[in-house]
Amino acid sequence: MFMRKTLVAVACLLALTSPAWAAPAHTYDFGQPAPAVKATRSIEVVMGDMSFNPGTIEIKAGETVRFVLVNKGQLLHEFNLGDASMHARHQQEMLQMQQSGMLTPTGMKEMDHGAMAGMDHGSMGHHMKGGMKHDDPNSVLVEPGKTAELTWSFTQATTLEFACNIPGHYQAGMVGKLTVSQ
C-alpha cells in the first residue's frame, strides 16, 4: 500500500512538472531577445517626458540591435517593442500595476504577497502570474536620469511601434515607429 501511494504521488508530481503542463515561454513573431555581444549596431534612444528621440527607427531583417535607452525626463518610462494591439494589452497590465501601488511616477516597488491579496492575477497577462513583475523580454523600464539597454534580433520584415505603456504616456504621444525591412 505504501509503495502504491508513493508511486501515485511521484506520478502526480511528474505530471504537474512536465513541460507539457508548464507555461509556454512568450514568443514574438518579429524576433527575440539577444545578448548585447551579438549586436550588429547600437541605437541610442533618448526618453524625454512624453517623447522619444529619434521618433522613427529603420532596421533590416536579420539585424541584431542594441538599444541604449537614456531617460532624460523626470518620470519613469518604458521602452517596449510590439504592435499596437500588444501595447494596448500591456497598457492594461501597467494600469493594474499602477493601481496596486507597485508602479509609481518615478519607479517600481516590489510587492509582497500580502499587498497582492484580492487582486485578479488571472487577468494580468503572462508576466503577472505568480506575482507582479515587469519582466517581458521585449520591454525595459528606465528610471529618471538612468540608462538601460535592450538587445533584440529582428527576424522578419514588419512594422512595429516602440512605446511607453505607463498609464497615459502612450496616449500623450510617447510612441515611435520601427520599420524592419528586407
Score class of each variant (00 low, 15 high):
A36T: 08
L16Y: 12
S85P: 03
D29F: 11
L81N: 03
H121N: 06
K177F: 09
H90G: 01
H26S: 09
V46M: 04
D136M: 13
S100E: 13
M94N: 02
F67Y: 15
N53R: 09
G62Q: 11
H113L: 08
Q92E: 12
V68A: 04
L81K: 05
G145D: 07
P105S: 08
V140P: 13
G107N: 15
L16M: 14
G122Y: 07
V46L: 05
M97Y: 14
M124P: 03
L150R: 09
G82S: 02
M174K: 00
M128A: 15
E161W: 03
E93T: 12
L69Y: 07
K177A: 14
L150G: 06
D120R: 11
M119E: 07
T159D: 12
E78H: 06
M132N: 06
L75I: 02
K109L: 14
Q182G: 15
G173C: 02
H126F: 06
F52Q: 06
Q99E: 14
A39E: 01
F154C: 04
K38D: 07
V70G: 01
G114C: 09
V140H: 10
P167E: 10
H121P: 00
A15R: 05
A36I: 07
N165L: 03
T159K: 15
I166R: 06
S123D: 09
E143S: 12
P33M: 01
P105W: 04
A84Y: 11
H87E: 10
S139F: 06
N53I: 09
V45N: 04
C164P: 00
V46S: 08
P19D: 00
G55K: 10
E93S: 12
M108D: 00
W152M: 01
I57K: 05
M132Q: 13
V68F: 02
T27Y: 10
Q74L: 06
P19V: 00
Q182S: 13
M94P: 01
M86K: 13
P167C: 11
E143P: 00
L160P: 01
C164N: 03
E143G: 03
A11F: 11
F154V: 02
V45S: 08
T40N: 11
V8I: 15
L7V: 05
A88E: 13
